[in-house]
Design a protein around this nucleic acid. Structure first.
Lengths: 218, 218
DNA sequence: AAAACCATTGTACTAAGGTACAACCCGGGA
DNA sequence: TCCCGGGTTGTACCTTAGTACAATGGTTTT
């Protein structure tokens, strides 16, 4: 291992995953990212460079976005909308997306959005941002101390299992999905419980989903 | 893709102009844009692809930004700060900049920022945006489709127990807290599972915490 | 008053989650 | 080479969660 493993490089090597409601990959997406893949709705974990979620016309988009965020861990999630509206963009932003753009955006724009979000930036259209700024007076509370990253103390495998649990999967389901024994799943979980100082899968879930905080710096 | 007379192409052909307080062009700027030029403070008009304004440490930055916006017309203005702070970023945004980033950002990042703003986007760091979204959350319209309220189909007692479960409590703990039997807690939970169509306490937790959605309108 | 709903509890019983105490394989570093 | 950590699995056991099939008493609706 000569060079330090750059997380960005590793992320970039992964494919772009597009999440749709049954629709195949669009030509503009394919053109921007020849390696584009469709997201599998039932998966509980996913390796991706960037996850592009095509927003459905109706319904609450927050759970959809959150779900994929949990699945991919630190890969950025970008919301695609065929009818971009500022209100929808706000909801998406509040859900934590790293970008919000038109589902029919040109390949060039898509690539640029990808570049931006992969570097930790956020991509927005002008209109949305104007609204954002306009409605924000001068109050800037909430220093928002960066929440401790629970993944730090866990091994790769433990993180995967923890994410699956936190999305509601049973040990058996996780075992099947990862092609390992239920016993192994339990082993990973026991290790995770210990490291994160929680007593069971439910408290682990709260932690993974950011509802509770990591306590002692293990 | 051959494009016609695109205003974007014309804009891109112009040099990048850096506005400083007497400082020469920095190496990272030059590296990112070999054609980089310094902006003259006294000028009244300027042709530029992107105007990068290095913010002075003190004083009101709004007039400075506005001035250059007027000078360049439709070219985007990006604020550079050697000590980026969210408060300063907010001020810059309110002044109408298309981006706000570190004055010592790497050439790669600068180029990417340029790409973004040239396409009409806005480039921000994660932290600033989070703050923006957080403070704007209350003032903007709620999600178009109000998420179904899971409490509607439950009795008062079931809601209480469900909330307790969703915060990580065990049946025994809930029983003690409510001064009832563990058996009763189970009864309420079983009823809640049935009504909300979930199979166990973990999925109930996801529902209560808004991570998943209520499916069938029971 | 009867029906319907709610909160409560009991006795099983089954299923799932979690722990204890291991073992094996593999790759990398002292 | 030996040791160590990560991933894997086994057996046994205990605890917790959840279900089946009840019952009781209270309140509200019909």
């Amino acid at each position: 291992m000569t060079r330090k493993s750059d997380p960005l490089e590793k992320l970039k090597a992964l494919p772009h995953v597009f999440v749709t409601d049954g629709e195949p990959i669009r030509s503009n997406w394919r053109e921007a990212f020849p390696q584009a893949q469709l997201g599998y709705t039932r998966a509980t974990s996913c390796e991706a460079s960037v996850v592009w979620v095509l927003l459905p016309y109706t319904g609450d988009i927050t759970p959809l976005i959150r779900r994929w965020q949990r699945m991919v861990g630190d890969a950025p999630v970008v919301a695609l909308s065929d009818e971009p509206r500022d209100e929808e963009g706000m909801v998406a932003l509040r859900a934590g997306v790293s970008g919000y753009c038109n589902g029919y955006a040109s390949p060039a724009v898509l690539q640029q959005v990808a570049e931006t979000v992969l570097q930790g930036g956020v991509w927005l259209g002008q209109s949305l941002l104007q609204k954002l700024v306009a409605t924000t007076a001068q109050n800037l509370p909430k220093p928002a101390v960066a929440p401790l990253d629970w993944t730090l103390s866990l091994t790769e495998r433990e993180v995967i299992v923890a994410r699956a649990v936190a999305s509601g999967a049973s040990n058996k389901e996780i075992a099947d999905q990862l092609n390992i024994t239920e016993r192994t799943v339990k082993a990973h979980l026991t290790a995770a419980f210990e490291k994160l100082r929680v007593r069971d899968r439910l408290q682990l879930t709260l932690l993974v989903n950011g509802i509770t905080e990591l306590k002692a710096p293990s």
